[in-house]
Write a protein that binds this DNA or RNA. Structure first.
Lengths: 237, 237
DNA sequence: CGCTATCTTGACAATCTTCAAGGCCTGTGG
DNA sequence: CCACAGGCCTTGAAGATTGTCAAGATAGCG
């Protein structure tokens, strides 16, 4: 692994990085940040631009420094399944060799930290703590994927919406028994995430609203009025 | 980590282990097998018995030495989603703390190698190569889960069956343009894996048979007659 | 040789999708 | 300032796929 320190402000990019505490990089102590800086370089991606294409050889790995992305798989006839959303601190790419399993597209302007495959390998060799964090992270993602498999394989449309609205990754603000959610994506993305159509998303939201369980003060804002009822719908308990 | 060598044939259990070459244990060299033996103990599980219960605290990890299992998640009203099948060499459990994300039930009599959470942690600390293998394994499982999310969210019943029959993990024997598959599970498990009902599984298999694409010489045996047609159904290309 | 599990097939019902039209919000240009 | 255009979202009606319920076939096993 070649150690090439950047010409100026060698450590600054990582020391002041907003994502450092949220990402697997936090396993690397301050005094070794030179290695991290040398292994990575930052790039920006405009909204709506793809930066990972399913099927391409996985030569690079990305750490999200700012912004968020949707991760999805596509079929030849245009159907697509969103397999997840990634925010600041998420790590994208495969550790094993092989093609990317999904595509990634920026939902808003993004800043990414890119590692080449060999550079990442070397980093993991040198900092086992980072490898452990990565293992924990991938394990957690696997558990989330399994939960989504239950949703996609066995839940009704109403149950999918209820589960989606209760996802802790969406949680923003709460006050008393009610919670205010901001949906950072259009209905089409919710539909592709839940394995249904945008019309069904719309219908189920209306149904929940008419039942007094939620309120929809704006297109992208949901107020949860009766969380317990939503939970009982999500789990069919 | 206490090192308690077993009373007799200290290394034999691992040296002669049928699963060793297929499992993450292969990262541990022969001369260090004492550590592996000390960290683990073998147990047997009869067919149809569960040995991991979703929601239980994940205190143990299992390596499959012999036999196979189905991994599934259940809902309160009995619906279940099989998230995968595990065979010899598979590693089950979470590396991170927390409850198990799924249940595991033996499909046939099994032999398992059990590691306690702290023992595994200590092993991974001592043998980074094993941790790397585990990371690669979990990453591959995540990619498989993502592929299954596409299937469950966006494919029709016919496409699901075609994809299932083409899954390389089912592959047994081939001769010329035809392949003979053995389905090691009943229709109900196929249904719970593909997110459909057993009646739909049966109907779609009959449909593929009437179309001349497959043959069903026995309940658990499928002969693939026209692989390319099956592939075009699976991918809608 | 019959018993019981599992599997297949059929008829009907429910859910979800598809197709279509209309509403709402936002930004832009007259 | 207002009108209009284009997204995005909602709602409705019709159709298709899949689920549910029920009955019958098949196969493995004592």
């Amino acid at each position: 692994m070649a150690i090439n320190v950047r010409p100026s402000e060698a450590l600054a990019p990582c020391l002041s990085c907003a994502a450092r505490l949220k990402s697997v990089c936090r396993a690397i102590p301050d005094r070794d940040l030179a290695c991290l800086v040398a292994a990575s370089n930052e790039l920006t991606v405009p909204a709506r631009r793809s930066f990972i294409e399913e099927g391409d050889v996985a030569t690079d790995f990305y750490n999200i420094v700012d912004g968020s992305a949707k991760l999805y798989k596509s079929m030849a006839d245009g159907r697509q399944q969103i397999i997840g959303f990634a925010g600041v601190g998420s790590f994208l790419g495969l550790v094993a060799a092989g093609p990317y399993a999904f595509s990634a597209e920026a939902l808003e302007p993004m800043r990414l930290c890119r590692f080449s495959q060999p550079a990442l390998s070397a980093l993991l060799d040198e900092f086992p703590a980072m490898e452990r964090l990565l293992l924990e992270r991938v394990s957690a993602e696997l558990a989330a994927a399994q939960e989504q498999m239950l949703l996609l394989g066995r839940k009704t449309a109403r149950e999918r919406l209820a589960s989606f609205l209760l996802d802790p990754r969406l949680r923003k603000a709460r006050s008393g028994g009610t919670e205010l959610l901001h949906l950072p994506m259009p209905r089409s993305d919710i539909a592709d995430y839940l394995g249904i159509t945008i019309e069904t998303v719309s219908r189920m939201l209306s149904m929940l609203r008419l039942a007094g369980i939620i309120d929809i003060p704006g297109k992208s804002t949901i107020l949860i009025r009766r969380r317990k009822q939503l939970e009982s719908i999500a789990a069919r308990e």
